[in-house]
C-alpha cells in the first residue's frame, strides 16, 4: 500500500510511540481514510500487517466507530447535527435544505462525487447551534439561508 510521504512518516511514528503498538490503530485508520477517501480492503490488510493484527480484528474496530467508513463518500461530507440543542434551534430545516440544495438523500453522494450529507449526533458546538461539520471544518449558527454560501465555499475545490 502506497501512502503520501507525510502519511507514511506519521505511520512510522505512530507504531513506535505507544506502550502497545495496537494503540495506533484508530488514528491510523482515520488518517488513512482522510487520504484514501475510505478504508479499502487494501488499507485493512496493510494496517493489520503493520500492527500485527488480523484483518478481522481491524474490521471489528472499524465497524465500531461512526467516523470510519468502508465505502466511498462525497469529497466533502456535510454532517448536520440534529441533537437536542441543534434540534430546538432549527437543525432539521438546515438538514432538509442541505439535502435539497445538493439533491441527495441521507448518505447519498452527489453525481459529481463532491458532496454527501449525513445527519450526525452532537458535535460539541451546542452553544452555537445549529452546527454543521463539513469534513473537519465547523460551521456555527448555520441557518437555511446560510447553507448556500457554506456549500459554495467548497465548490471549485480551491479551498479543499
Amino acid at each position: 500500500m502506497r501512502y503520501s510521504p507525510e502519511l507514511e512518516d506519521r505511520f512510522q511514528r505512530l507504531v513506535t510511540i505507544y506502550p502497545w503498538r495496537r494503540s495506533a490503530l484508530v488514528p491510523m485508520l482515520l488518517y488513512a481514510q482522510d487520504e484514501v477517501g475510505y478504508i479499502t480492503d487494501e488499507v485493512v490488510e496493510d494496517i493489520a500487517e503493520r500492527l500485527e493484527l488480523t484483518p478481522l480484528e481491524v474490521r471489528n474496530v472499524i465497524s465500531y466507530y461512526s467516523l470510519l467508513r468502508t465505502r466511498p463518500a462525497g469529497k466533502y461530507v456535510v454532517q448536520v447535527c440534529t441533537n437536542i440543542s441543534c434540534l430546538v434551534t432549527g437543525a432539521e430545516d438546515v438538514l432538509e435544505t442541505c439535502k435539497e440544495r445538493l439533491g441527495v438523500e441521507e448518505k447519498e453522494v452527489t453525481s459529481d462525487g463532491k458532496f454527501s450529507v449525513e445527519e450526525v449526533e452532537c458535535i460539541g458546538a451546542c452553544s452555537w447551534a445549529p452546527a454543521v461539520q463539513v469534513n473537519y471544518d465547523f460551521h456555527l449558527n448555520v441557518t437555511p439561508e446560510k447553507v448556500d454560501s457554506m456549500l459554495n465555499s467548497y465548490r471549485g475545490g480551491a479551498k479543499a
Partner: peptide, 16 residues
C-alpha cells in the same frame, strides 16, 4: 480467533 464482533448497538453482529 476466526469470529469477531462488528458494528455497535442493535446492529452488532458476529462476523467471520
Amino acid at each position: 480467533w476466526a469470529l469477531g464482533i462488528q458494528n455497535r448497538g442493535v446492529t452488532s453482529l458476529i462476523a467471520p
